[in-house]
Design a binder for these strands. Structure first.
Lengths: 325, 325
DNA sequence: TATACTTGCGTAAGTTCTTACATAATTGCT
DNA sequence: AGCAATTATGTAAGAACTTACGCAAGTATA
């Protein structure tokens, strides 16, 4: 039988595990049959719990037994699952039920005489299976049992979804190119900034000046503008305005909504700081508004700290930040 | 949540694997949702097979497509499973069906335009998941993926049932004690031999002499008799009859049917040969009947080879064997 | 050229869980 | 005491397969 699993690789892990689970369950059932023990594999956790957690060494003593929920917690199943197993086992006369005297909702379960009569055989089988599995482990190069435990732990720590999301962000950010502004991007530069400014605030005079005349207002005085290109399209921009010989202002940073969540803001910021450093700057300044939470978070990530500087020409500016390079 | 799984250990592997499988499937579904790809995880193997095995690079060309059974073989599911998935995918307009012209039983399946339109996104997701899983592997000490492959292989080579059976035999044979004959076992010695001789043949004069007078016929001339004791009961026996100073005959070997399959014959034989060696024998001889297949197999296992010796006093003997110590 | 396998495929039901919902009984709190 | 929240449990339905079965359609063979 040819299988495509190797090619499909990691996408079909669920199927593969289920498959192996089925093999184990079937084999297990066969082992019970082989030893003539009338027990379904699915009963085992319940049976075992009742066996080990209930004192049945002194037959005369009242054995208190466990409730459905207690068993469920022990074996890590849902109570519904235990409820179903208990029903089945009761039908097979493996369990005895005694109504609780203190709490009418629950009853105490314990093994019937019939069930207890098969325990010695089960004990032997348990030993055999354990020895077999240990033998199997010794034959193996890779420890399936520990691998499962480890994987359970890793996925609990951070889910696959989250991990995939990170991986995606990483991939997409690799597909983003940060390039220098050229006049053909003038319209993109204006549009990208127009988008967010009008969404949260209103266009001010200084905005129009810079957006309409980037050459004159930003580039000629020694500044730079960068464009983020994703799939051939300008999806973000950011300007570095020269304030003095060793100080720049980071401004006009914009990422279109369609392309957010791809780390583009960070890439633009990082690129700008690198450029500023290259140009001999010792600090970079910026102005923003605390309403723009993600932006502020990004600035922090880039190393910016809140400072109090000179009054801003922008109405919307209510926070000033700086990073020392 | 307390779990008893560690204690229950190897008995509940099926459950545990199923559990982990469910986690993977659920997570996978979440990944599809996250990326806005309208695909169920269970469709993936079919989708992927159709994607990779069907030439859809030239839209004008007739794409032959695959049949249900072909897909089932590729992905290693039952055809019924594929049939169900195909039904579901067709309902979701992901598949196109073209009746086969040469064989009216089967139709050829291929991806619909809608399905093909999501392939690029799926391709990206595939890359992300693969990268994630690889990252996960790098974080792990135990390689789950290889462990599964290995376990599948090991269980295919020899099933768990078989392995458990062997383990059981081993355990039971450890519970068997081989002891020297004492007069209190006279009745057991006679009974055990009586059981098999009358089942396959008939008691001969020489039988009655040896079984009724083991002291006189076997022990006094320098021979030995051993009893196999299992759970306080004599379940097998075997005699070593002195033929000459350095040659013994292995005879009167019997294991009761109730206790067969516990390796007892081997233990008796092994013990006898050890004793013969200890007594200075250089070879051990025996007579048997080829009708007794398991016995002959056992003798071979003990090292006996067919020889042609002097005529036997027993009617039933049609094979003679010998092992050189 | 009948007749008997074999093949392809769909349906039904089973397996071993789960989640969602329903229903008492008990507890907590005012 | 009165009512809401919690707890213990059961039932139903669902998920992702499987095996069993039935029924055409095709192939082989006497």
């Amino acid at each position: 039988m040819a299988t495509i699993y190797d090619e499909m690789g990691k996408m079909a892990m669920g199927s593969r595990l289920r498959r192996l689970a089925e093999v184990f369950t079937d084999e297990n059932r066969a082992v019970y049959n082989q030893n003539g023990i009338p027990v379904e594999p699915r009963w085992f956790p319940v049976l075992y719990t009742l066996w080990k957690k209930t004192d049945d060494t002194r037959p005369g003593l009242t054995r208190p037994g466990l409730t459905t929920t207690e068993i469920a917690e022990w074996i890590g199943h849902s109570h519904a699952s235990v409820s179903q197993i208990v029903k089945e086992m009761t039908k097979n006369e493996m369990l005895e039920t005694v109504k609780s005297e203190t709490d009418a909702r629950c009853s105490h379960l314990s093994l019937s005489a019939k069930a207890r009569s098969i325990l010695p055989a089960l004990d032997n089988q348990l030993a055999d299976v354990e020895a077999t599995v240990e033998q199997l482990q010794r034959e193996s190069q890779f420890d399936l049992f520990r691998a499962i435990t480890e994987m359970e732990y890793l996925l609990e720590k951070k889910s696959l979804v989250e991990r995939v999301r990170e991986q995606r962000k990483l991939r997409e950010s690799r597909e983003v190119a940060i390039i220098d502004y050229t006049p053909e991007y003038h319209n993109d530069f204006r549009q990208l900034n127009h988008e967010w400014i009008t969404k949260y605030f209103r266009l001010e005079v200084s905005d129009n000046l810079a957006l309409d005349h980037p050459d004159e207002k930003i580039l000629h005085p020694g500044g730079h503008i960068f464009m983020a290109i994703y799939k051939g399209e300008a999806v973000g921009t950011c300007a570095l305005i020269k304030m003095s010989d060793n100080r720049f202002e980071l401004a006009k940073m914009a990422v279109t909504e369609r392309a957010q969540g791809k780390n583009i803001g960070y890439l633009l910021g990082k690129h700008s700081l690198d450029k500023a450093r290259e140009l001999g700057a010792t600090s970079v300044f910026l102005e923003s508004n605390t309403k723009l939470k993600p932006a502020i978070t990004l600035y922090h990530k880039l190393g910016f700290q809140k400072i109090v500087g000179p009054p801003s020409p922008y109405e919307r500016a209510n926070i000033q930040m700086e990073v020392v390079l």
